[in-house]
Design a protein around this nucleic acid. Structure first.
Lengths: 211, 211
DNA sequence: ACCTGAACACCGTTCAAGT
DNA sequence: ACCTGAACACCGTTCAAGT
């Protein structure tokens, strides 16, 4: 559909905050009111965009080891969302996450069960990983956007450099290295630690058949 | 300030999406243009609201054990943000997190260092916990808002109940229990697992002096 | 069927003018 | 100093009317 292509173009060029029905109509070469014959309202438009994108997320080959399957599935979703981070904002603001992402949920829950979790523990593990993934994408995407918009010195960085070393000894010592540290992509590393911790804690409550 | 009190009232009553300069002026009993003598613009207003709230977050007494200090600090921030979740949206969208939250960063970094982490590992640990915390609050707050707005059946839940059991065996089996499981507050449990996993992985790379 | 202009009920913000 | 009405440049959406 013509409209969806125009919407994708505008979002990539100007950011999704700048997408309005009127701008979209101008880009698509129609009247704003015409759009309402193709989508119910703006929310519906964004949902369709979300689902189209979700359907495109490639399913990676899954390793045999269940723990690695969990990590592979989470990383696949993370990397796809990170490539178009505004999608995540709709995903959390909106309910209609499509069936497209369900393979990831199933894969993670199945992996956790194969690691010896109960189904409840597996569901909790999935949710914990989802929270971590969403948070990482939102925080880092907004930080990146700000770096692009602002000229140079972020508020947080200047605040860090002026901290009282008596009250904040570790932060003051880290201040000049902080921007470089915060810019690193540590998602995968954190994910691995999280999965390890979640599985270990699950086994404490409910030891698996064979350790 | 009169204006800030009115803003808090409106946000609590109607949600922060509904807060507009014009509505706020009406509530405060002035003209919309008058607001601009007290705040630079709408973003400035939200930032002031954020900082006022952050200053109020109580600092809990910190236990002696460094791992428990990390968990206590993270939970204190989490619980405060969860009580007024829209704050988190501004916190991620906006850069100007005040000095008020810095004690939490310092406490977590210091706790990680006391657990044997290098400063880099401590900074990574803090960031990972922050991502998890932000994600948990945003996802759950939006889910709760939707439960309030929508009449009853969430899209996700109906989608879950119609899953093909052949392709999604675990999810299909969990479908009817999913809403109840997802409504549970598992933040603290996940936090503990995450901290355990992060510290264990850090020690693999860099074993602490005394284990 | 598909499209549209006019219109409605809103926004955030500026600025010259009032007390 | 503090406040304000008029105005500007926008929004999303509806609806009767056009082809």
């Amino acid at each position: 559909m013509q409209i969806m292509a125009a919407a994708r173009l505008l979002i990539d060029r100007d950011g999704w905050q700048k997408l309005t029905m009127r701008r979209l109509a101008a880009e698509a070469g129609t009247a704003p009111t015409t759009l309402y014959h193709h989508v119910r309202d703006k929310e519906d438009l964004l949902t369709q965009l979300l689902n189209d994108y979700a359907d495109q997320i490639p399913r990676p080959p899954l390793p045999a080891d269940p723990r690695e399957r969990i990590i592979t599935a989470a990383r696949a979703i993370h990397d796809s969302l990170a490539a178009w981070p505004w999608i995540t904002e709709i995903l959390t603001a909106d309910d209609r996450a499509g069936e497209a992402a369900m393979w990831m949920v199933e894969t993670i829950v199945a992996g956790a069960v194969d690691c010896g979790c109960t189904t409840e523990q597996a569901a909790d593990l999935y949710r914990a990983i989802w929270y971590y993934t969403v948070g990482e994408i939102l925080v880092r995407a907004n930080a990146a956007r700000r770096r692009g918009e602002l000229d140079r010195p972020s508020h947080r960085d200047t605040l860090l450099s002026k901290l009282d070393p008596a009250r904040f000894p570790h932060l003051a010592a880290l201040a000049d290295r902080w921007p470089a540290l915060a810019a690193r992509d540590t998602y995968a590393q954190g994910l691995r630690a999280f999965v390890d911790g979640l599985l270990a804690n699950a086994h404490d409550d409910h030891p698996p058949r064979r350790a």
